[in-house]
Design a binder for these strands. Structure first.
Lengths: 280, 280
DNA sequence: CGTGCCAGGTGCCCT
DNA sequence: AGGGCACTTGGCACG
């Protein structure tokens, strides 16, 4: 069950720890950019060794098998035995996935130290197990996955130079209004974005045609009461900040608004402008 | 590159579609509860077949390789070629992970239809690719992952009957106060939880020793201005609801509070009670 | 299915 | 490191 020492990707691989040039297989003389090495149904000891090796080499490591999971930190949790998929990332993140849900059942954020060891079984007192631990501080948090059986261990090396290009965000919506202020109201003049107040930063601050102060709160999607409260905080704070008697107008800009939020808007004398982030 | 048809787990496996009894390997006559089947460096066609088979059998399927990712729905995004880890869950969830971050770079929530196909290459006009598509409606969203190279395909079958036991939640904090109302204030009497108002539901509604109405907002962790705004909404709404002149007292219960939130609390005449969810 | 809100939210940016 | 907030937030419970 000895497996070849996995080569490490070249210098442009973003998750390499060092630069190597390695021959993967006789007859494969090129530098491997990416690679996946897999153990199937390994012993716990072999799995442990492969995982330790993968972590050492800054690989992305996955483990599938029957395990229990314990977490303690900001909250605490336990999960009895079952088959789950565990992913350990070289940046210190850990994910435990069941076969359901988009969210991991347990996890650890980037910045953790991963540790793996085999324990028990020798003295016959306890069942043998493979223990995966991810620990961090600030806050102190510990995730512990104990495998009684490992069905697969994989280590992945790869290269990924590109970043996600996302559109349809609140930032895009803001830009749309700054490009064409009349979308808010004829005569509107933006004066600042992220204008700071004692209650937080105003998305867009400006003036209407009559020179009255305007606070604009932006939301990329349909909004509820919380967005109205937010606008309320900023308008209140600005009125105090300006210590002026002139009323400050509050605008909520979003694709749509719920009934309750509509009611709250009207209670506070705020205005709603239906507008979406650009589609492209 | 022909691989054995993967057995499907027994009736207690929660992600089986049907019940089979299968002999995995000659000499392994028992029903397999869990299994991991892996292809390394498959052709795109072989990968496609394995993925299609895994999806068909309600397995958890992972694919690692060089791909581009396009998403369109509530927002839209593109991601140029790189090596990523894709997980397809039998409940319809899809996750695309790079080697960094706890969050997937792209994803699709449960309830999607996964589809896989091979395309191009035959006519020489376009490079051959393996296309993974996850689609849902309400809202209409589409995720498309195009692999130019697949380094690994795995299909996982497993059993997981146990659910996560979590403690340290807001619910635990609420129970703590209901068990010992004096933790809020001597003489406090809880009257209702989740009491509905036009502005939303009040975590705990009750009376103080003098019979004045009390609104309690709970947070399991340190809070900022948003929690104060929330409390404000409920107190306002309750005062209108009761159409009484008697002032309603507002309490914020949390482990701690930020400076800005402290300021806002004092502005509104609310009180803060430092309290944590029980540790166990 | 929409509304409202908690979450071990996470991630990003700013001080 | 802590604060404030957006997020394709996800997830749940309720009308």
């Amino acid at each position: 069950m000895e497996r070849a020492s996995p080569p490490v990707p070249g210098p442009d691989a973003f998750w390499s720890c060092e630069s190597y040039v390695v021959v993967v297989t006789p007859g494969t003389p090129t530098t491997q950019r990416s690679q996946a090495v897999t153990l199937e149904q390994p012993t716990l000891e072999a799995a442990c060794e492969a995982i330790a090796d993968g972590l050492e080499r800054e690989a992305l490591v996955t483990v599938f098998g029957r395990c229990t999971v314990d977490y303690d930190g900001r909250a605490s949790s336990t999960l009895e035995a079952g088959d789950r998929h565990v992913m350990l990332k070289p940046d210190g993140a850990a994910l435990v996935h069941t076969d359901e849900g988009q969210q991991p059942v347990n996890w650890q954020p980037p910045g953790c130290d991963h540790d793996v060891r085999c324990d028990g079984g020798a003295d016959g007192e306890s069942d043998p197990e493979l223990i995966l631990e991810s620990v961090r501080s600030t806050p102190d948090e510990r995730l512990c996955v104990r495998f009684e059986e490992v069905l697969q261990v994989s280590t992945f090396f790869g290269a990924d130079e590109n970043e996600l290009a996302l559109s349809g965000t609140e930032e895009d919506l803001r830009q749309r209004i700054l490009d064409e202020p009349a979308l808010l109201e004829t005569g509107f003049t933006p004066l600042a974005t992220e204008r700071d107040t004692p209650a937080g930063a105003i998305d867009i601050y400006g003036e209407d045609a009559a020179g009255r102060s305007v606070v604009v709160e932006l939301k990329r999607r349909r909004v509820g009461p919380d967005a109205v409260s937010q606008l309320r905080r900023y308008v209140d704070a600005l009125e105090r900040d300006l210590h002026a008697d002139a009323a400050v107008r509050g605008f909520l800009v979003a694709p749509s608004v719920t009934d309750r939020a509509t009611r709250l808007l009207s209670d506070h004398g705020f205005e709603f402008v239906p507008l979406e982030p650009p589609a492209e």
